[in-house]
Design a protein around this nucleic acid. Structure first.
Length: 669
RNA sequence: GGAGACGUAGCUCAAUGGAUCAGAGCAUCUCGCUACGAACGAGAAGGUUGAAGGUUCGAGUCCUUCCGUUUCCA
């Protein structure tokens, strides 16, 4: 009986009791964690809600406390419940039977659903960096949120496909191509040569493009002729089948490879790279257009300023002329808008478009895992390719500035697909990572008068303003290595470097996850580089120390299984838990047992920060426990066994919680 | 001009409408390593949750109006 199962049982029981005693059937029963262990292990505020409902239906005021008293009796009969109390204004507080609960959970896996593969299939799209430059820290926020969310879904038993959308035919790629062709006067052969040269010098193609992109942006401001080239190049790239398009494809592909390598450093991987070029060349839009016309969710405007346009009516957005532009899917000149294309693509993700890409392998990770990429060429298609798309639900990790567009896409798709409706498309939005004016000038950027007064400055690829992901990770690894060096000089060089890498990833991933999604992160070097306080390194440190207890135990020839057998005496264990110090031990054990529940909460709220906060809380709780109890030297055999079993449970939950955030526990640190 | 987000300790952030004191981290000031690891812990100090109304058993959280910051659309 895990805490989640027990919770479900009790919730059911409260619901049954409400129906039986008050004839209220559709009550949503919620449970809470009481603020202190002294107030119990699980709380139900159901009596408040019942009082409200009784007042609504009968007009009579009733006392939540007396309602709670009625419910209380129904819960006391449960096996794992030692007592139930009515507290405060009408809370129903449940206390678990501590020895029984400990005994039952002593060797339970903290995430029982992790190995299940029978859940619904979801698609998560994240990263989606324009393939014209290196990734900066803002892109990493996207990827880390997305990757962590994938891990959370998987930990709760779902099947997840990870997509990284590649906009290889957009203006951003066109800009870099303009730079190569018109500023650098390079053709494809010359760019290939440059790529080889960079490799030989230990430099990377995406960094080169980063600088070139910024130069193009600057040149546009004074050179109108160059700016005119942009539209021309963009048109050629979109059309395909010409020299410029081939050159652009090389540039985009090299950048994608670089970005994949960068993300792999953060333990972030993908299943599929769907490309914009195939959405265009396979005419996804035409297929969607056909369906929409048939279903009548779109119509040809015959009069007004949108005459000749195909538009989709949105009730929620009606009544404001300025916003009508977003409802236009096909302009009067016959070209399709971005919204139109996005709707077609979203339909593919949900498996309702009625057509598919062709697929070929693109990249292979060191362990053999493959990343697939889309192709428009049927002859390149590999027959054994997995089935992509067909998500029951689709999560798009895209920053909050795209909220309006995402909303239009969601509503558009829902009109075509009323069976699942708006719930099938989730915009996992997050705020940007910005720079403080101080951080921007630290990076060597000249700031305007106005910029200096701002509370933060947006990173901009176009301006070359940003903290590059690899640079920051390099810096974190270097700092961590110095620390490892000073603490464990005896280790081999490679092992030290590996530990430093694990710590650097832990620091950065945690840093990006501890903020809730709609908080703007104003990037601060000191904060991001810190390894003290609320950091990933802090959590890793707790896990490493907990592991060292068990290393000592094994060195002494003791088996954990034998120790687990020493807690069978329920009376003795109850006595230990009921002492003042034992109460704290119990509180920590329960906290560790709440990992699964926390993940469900994080998944339901689409909020990975909930997991980060929990992990930190657990690490802190372990430190408290560790400082207050001498575990291995404890003379009383039963108490020692209880302490060891609790420590084991904490380290397992802590390790799994960190793993779900993509953070590893080093062997030493 | 229209739509959204945000405003909580000196700073950076938490807090499914719930409990007695609105919690963490950083910074500041004390204190603790011959211990299962101090990248740690204990303690002190720090708040009219931007303002004013409203809803109810109960509001940092919901509603209205202001003020401020910010993003998107035009």
């Amino acid at each position: 009986m895990t805490i989640t199962q027990l919770q479900q049982l009790l919730r059911q029981a409260v619901g049954d009791a409400a129906r039986e005693l008050f004839n209220i059937a559709d009550l949503q029963i919620v449970s809470e964690v009481p603020p202190k262990t002294e107030l119990g292990d699980l709380a139900f505020p159901a009596a408040f809600e019942l009082a409200k409902r009784i007042k609504q239906s009968t007009g009579e005021k009733s006392n939540p406390r007396s309602i709670a008293e009625g419910l209380k009796e129904k819960l006391e009969t449960f096996d794992f419940v030692s007592k139930v109390e009515v507290a405060g204004a009408g809370y129903l507080n449940v206390f678990f039977n501590r020895p029984r609960f400990l005994k039952e959970n002593v060797d339970a896996h903290p995430l029982p659903s992790l190995s299940k593969k029978d859940g619904e299939k979801f698609c998560v799209e994240h990263t989606s960096v324009n393939p014209n430059k290196a990734a900066h820290i803002g892109h990493v926020r996207n990827s880390v949120i997305g990757d962590t969310f994938v891990r959370i879904l998987r930990a709760t038993g779902q099947r997840v496909e990870i997509q990284n959308y590649i906009d290889n035919t957009g203006v951003q790629v066109a800009d870099v191509v303009v730079g190569f062709v018109y500023l650098e006067k390079m053709d494809l052969a010359a760019i290939r040569g440059l790529d080889e040269k960079l490799k030989a010098e230990g430099r990377t193609f995406d960094y080169y493009c980063w600088d070139l992109y910024a130069r193009v942006g600057q040149a546009y401001q004074t050179d109108d002729e160059l700016k005119a080239k942009r539209a021309e190049v963009l048109h050629l790239i979109e059309a395909g089948g010409n020299e410029t398009a081939v050159l652009a494809d090389f540039v985009a592909t090299r950048n994608v490879e670089c970005i994949l390598r960068t993300m792999e450093r953060f333990s972030i991987r993908y299943d599929l790279l769907p490309r914009e070029s195939e959405i265009l060349h396979l005419h996804f839009w035409a297929k969607a257009f056909e369906q929409m016309k048939e279903l009548g969710v779109i119509h040809l405007e015959s009069e007004g300023k949108n005459a000749g346009c195909w538009v989709m009516p949105f009730e929620e957005h009606a009544g404001n002329d300025e916003h009508e532009g977003d409802k236009i899917l096909v302009r009067s000149n016959g070209t399709v808008t971005y919204t139109g294309k996005d709707i077609a693509y979203q339909m593919w993700k949900l498996g309702i478009l009625g057509m598919d890409f062709f697929y070929k392998p693109f990249f292979e990770y060191a362990d053999g895992q493959k990343v697939w990429i889309t192709t428009a060429d049927e002859s390149q298609h590999i027959d054994g390719a997995p089935e992509f798309g067909h998500g029951k639900k689709v999560y798009n990790v895209i920053d909050t500035r795209q909220s309006y567009t995402q909303d239009v896409v969601k509503k558009g798709v829902a009109a075509i697909y009323p069976q699942e409706g708006e719930a099938a498309s989730v915009h996992l939005s997050y705020e940007m990572v910005a720079l403080s004016p101080a951080a921007a000038s630290d990076l060597g950027f000249e700031l305007s008068e106005d910029d200096r007064k701002r509370s933060f400055i947006e990173m901009s690829g176009r301006k070359g303003l940003g903290v590059k992901a690899d640079d920051l990770l390099d810096r974190l690894e270097k700092n961590a290595l110095a620390e490892v060096e000073s603490r464990h000089a005896e280790l081999e060089t490679e092992r030290k470097a590996f530990i430093a890498h694990q710590l650097a990833v832990g620091a950065l991933r945690y840093f990006l996850l501890k903020f809730t999604r709609n908080t703007v992160i104003v990037f601060d070097f000191n904060e991001a580089l810190s390894t003290e306080g609320e950091t990933g390194v802090f959590c890793q440190y707790s896990a490493v120390r907990s592991n060292s207890i068990f290393r000592k135990l094994a060195d002494g020839g003791e088996s954990l299984n034998h120790i687990r057998g020493l807690i069978r005496d329920e009376e003795k264990v109850a006595e230990i838990f009921n002492s003042e110090a034992g109460n704290d031990v119990w509180a920590i054990f329960v906290l560790a047992a709440r990992l699964e529940e926390t993940l469900k909460q994080a998944a339901a709220a689409n909020e990975p920060a909930i997991l980060a906060k929990y992990t930190f809380q657990l690490a802190k709780a372990f430190n408290f426990f560790y400082h207050n109890h001498k575990i291995l030297p404890e003379p009383d055999e039963t108490k020692r066994a209880v302490l060891i079993v609790v420590a084991d449970r904490i380290r397992q939950s802590l390790t799994e919680a960190l793993a779900t955030m993509g953070i590893e526990v080093p062997e030493r640190m």
